[in-house]
Structure formats: C-alpha cells, structure tokens
Amino acid sequence: MATTQFGKETSERGEFVRQANRFTQRITADGSSGWRAEPGRYRLVVSLACPWAHRSIIVRRLLGLEEAISLAVVDPIRDEKGWRFTLDEGGRDPVLGIEYLSQAYLATDPEFTGRVTVPSIVDIESGTVVTNDYPQISLDLSTQWREFHRPDAPDLYPADRRAEIDEVMDPIFRNVNNGVYRCGFAGSQQAYDEAFTALFGELDRLTERLSGQRYLLGDTLTEADIRLFTTLVRFDAVYHGHFKTNRHKLAELDVLWAYARDLYQTPGFGDTVDFDHIKRHYYVTHDAINPTRIVPLGPDLSGWDRPHGRA
C-alpha cells in the first residue's frame, strides 16, 4: 500500500483502497450484541455532504425514527482534526458536548490513528462510538429498530428478498458508489481507466434494468435504491467534473436521470439533499484535486424538480 497526494491509500497499481470501518458493533432489537435499540440512547452523526452518511439520513426519515435517534450534523469542511461541530452554537455538539467527532473516536479507542468517518453512531451516556459501519447501520435501522418505526413505514430490506437485494447492491457499491472514488483518487492512469470503464459499464447495465421497471427490485422501493440514489444525486454537482467521471452527465442519461428525479421528489430523499454542503465539501476539502478551492457555481440544479414520468 502507498499513500497518494490525496492522503488516500492506494494499491501498488495506483488503485484507491477504502479504509476499513474501525467500529463494527451492532445495535440489536434484543440487545444480544451488547447494545440494545432504545429511543434516546444514541446520536447519529452525519455530514450532509457524505453519500455514505446520506443513506442513514434517508432511511431514518423514511422509517420515522427521527424521535428515536437524534441527529448531529457536522460542518461540511473538515480541518486537520477531521469533522467539526462548528454548525452548532459555540462549535460544540449540544448533546455530546464535543467539538470534533474525533473526540468520541479517541474516547472509544485512545490508540486510533485512522481517518474519522461518518456516519457514526455514538452512545450518548458514555460518549463512545458504537459503530461507523455504514453498510450495516442503514440495514440495522430497517431490521433492528422495527418496534420504533412509524406505522406505515416501508420495509426497505424484506427478509424474503434480501439475497436478491444484496446481489443488486454488490456491483453498485463496487462500480458506482465506490467507483466514483476509484476514479477521483486513482494514483495511475491505468487505475483511473479501469475504474471509469467499470463505472459507466455498470450505469449502462442499470439503465437497461430500470428501463422496464420503476425501482431496482421492480415496483418496490428498497435499500438498493437508496444506495444508488446517494451517488446519482451528487453525480453532476461534483463527480462529473471533480472526479473526472465525465463520459456523460447524469442529466444526459435519460432513464437514470428520470429514475433519480423520481426518488428525489419522494419525501425523505430530496428534502435530505443539501447541494451547498455537497459542493463545498468536495471542492474545498480535496485540495490536492482542486488546489484553488474554488467552488463552481454550476451546474443548474433546477431540473431535479421537473416531472419524471415514472410513477
């Protein structure tokens, strides 16, 4: 492994390698994990800019867990200490009483030296991190917090379709969710070319799949749609230019553009998107890619509200 000028780990071939999640304990309905699902006990820390955190924000909203799990939003701009609570009065989270998410990480593991990531779920009483395992967080919100879902909450990860959902989500993660980062943080031309080809190959396959059905699993909204949406909604605003994923803009891919607008206009999706946070985070934080830290004024985002014709 090597560290690129972007501060990211790369393989010998210059391929971006995502850091493993450090805290992977689970919050379960029966508490058998050591952490029981209890309203008011935990705080979900997110960045509105981060697609991995955005998944948990959407799931929390769709399931009606806002009262059960409180939400802390960090500043979209990280400094040398990581994610900051500068959006809160006094620069301190009002519930956890900390200025940086890293303080909760070090309270949990004083030897921690990796990157502090969002989403993270923090136990309010102890101030320690239960989990930053973003793929599992959203699944557990669906499966382990059922007692606290709103009465008409959707089943985003139904037991009888989990294998099918997992099969769909795997290449989406590899080629799209993580694929845009593999393009943006590639340390060699070959690594970039391979990631670019895999990304648009997958988008072409998804276009074919979605050309005859409303959602990835047919007529039912699932976790898979949420995971794809959080990348698509950032595509034209940041990935197309900043990460060089520029074969096409999302707005030029008719099926995926209509599909993304359909989700955006669904309560719980578009109302959790903050394009200002998204653009400022990517263009200011990744100063090795954008050393001037100039945040572009475009693209025109008004098209997200246009009729999508998929209902």
Results as ranks from 00 to 15, higher is better:
Ala2Gln: 13
Glu12Thr: 15
Glu15Trp: 08
Phe16Ser: 09
Gln19Ser: 14
Asn21Cys: 14
Arg22Cys: 05
Phe23Tyr: 14
Phe23Leu: 12
Thr24Val: 15
Gln25Gly: 05
Asp30Leu: 06
Asp30Gly: 12
Ser33Phe: 04
Glu38Leu: 13
Arg43Glu: 12
Leu44Phe: 11
Val45Met: 04
Ser47Phe: 01
Leu48Phe: 06
Cys50Phe: 00
Trp52Cys: 04
Arg55His: 07
Ser56Phe: 01
Ile57Val: 15
Ile58Asp: 02
Leu65Ile: 12
Glu66Ser: 10
Ala72Asn: 00
Val74Leu: 01
Val74Asn: 08
Pro76Val: 03
Lys81Ile: 01
Trp83Gly: 04
Arg84Glu: 01
Arg84Pro: 03
Asp88Cys: 10
Glu89Pro: 09
Gly91Asn: 08
Glu99Thr: 10
Glu99Arg: 12
Tyr100Thr: 08
Ser102Met: 12
Gln103Asp: 15
Leu106Lys: 11
Ala107Cys: 02
Thr108Leu: 11
Pro110Thr: 12
Pro110Asp: 14
Thr113Ser: 14
Thr113Glu: 15
Gly114Glu: 15
Val116His: 07
Val118Gly: 01
Val118Asp: 05
Ser120Arg: 03
Thr131Gln: 10
Thr131Trp: 03
Asp140His: 13
Ser142Val: 10
Ser142Gln: 10
Gln144Lys: 11
Phe148Cys: 08
His149Phe: 05
Arg150Gly: 07
Pro154Arg: 02
Tyr157Trp: 11
Ala159Pro: 00
Glu164Val: 06
Glu167Lys: 15
Val168Thr: 15
Pro171Trp: 11
Asn175Tyr: 06
Tyr181Val: 03
Cys183His: 12
Gly187Ser: 06
Gln190Thr: 13
Tyr192Phe: 15
Phe196Ala: 12
Phe196Gln: 12
Gly201Leu: 04
Asp204Lys: 10
Asp204Cys: 00
Asp204Tyr: 04
Thr207Ile: 06
Gly212Ile: 11
Gly212His: 15
Gln213Asn: 13
Ile226Ser: 01
Ile226His: 05
Leu232Met: 14
Leu232His: 00
Phe235Pro: 02
Lys244Ile: 01
Thr245Gln: 03
Thr245Gly: 00
Leu250Gly: 10
Leu250Cys: 03
Ala251Ser: 15
Glu252Cys: 03
Trp257Ser: 11
Arg261Gly: 05
Leu263Trp: 11
Leu263Lys: 06
Tyr264Lys: 05
Gly268Ile: 13
Gly270His: 07
Asp271Cys: 04
Val273Met: 09
Lys279Met: 13
Arg280Glu: 14
His281Trp: 08
Tyr283Cys: 05
Thr285Trp: 13
Asp287Phe: 14
Asp287Asn: 15
Asp287Pro: 03
Ala288Asp: 03
Asn290Gln: 14
Asn290Ser: 12
Ile294His: 06
Leu301Ile: 11
Arg310Gln: 08
Ala311Val: 02
